[in-house]
């Protein structure tokens, strides 16, 4: 069975974690990517990160300098999920454009 749709938060978190980031870095990156539209709240982000860790879609990198400040990065499994989601979103978008496109013009 293909993965069900990702939430907007999870989608942008996975997209952000192509490079290692800590919590606040993720919030800032998502804000930037979405042009300020998606503001991740810290509590929601914390819950999402733990779920993603459990699923093995991201992993925590140990930081020697400050072990309390954890950085995260996407895994191979996470990348597969993300790519599948982009394909799913393309289908949604193409159907929307095709069916509504005429009326929009």
């Amino acid at each position: 069975m293909p993965n069900p749709a990702l939430t907007e938060a999870v989608y942008y978190i996975l997209l952000s974690l192509q490079e290692p980031l800590h919590g606040y870095g993720i919030i800032q990156n998502v804000d930037k990517l979405s042009g300020g539209r998606v503001r991740l709240a810290a509590g929601t982000l914390y819950g999402a990160l733990n779920t993603l860790l459990d699923k093995g879609w991201i992993r925590a990198l140990e930081n020697e300098a400050d072990s309390r400040k954890k950085e995260y990065r996407i895994t191979e499994a996470g990348l597969d999920v993300l790519k599948a989601e982009v394909r799913r979103l393309r289908e949604l978008l193409e159907n929307g454009m095709r069916i509504l496109g005429e009326e929009e013009r």
């Binding site: 939430t7 907007e8 938060a9 998606v38 503001r39 991740l40 709240a41 810290a42 509590g43 929601t44 982000l45 819950g47």
Partner: peptide
């Protein structure tokens, strides 16, 4: 430092 919310989606509010 910007708006302060602990939750930004329905699921975490429900939880």
């Amino acid at each position: 430092d910007g708006p302060f919310d602990l939750y930004s989606d329905l699921e975490s509010r429900i939880k």
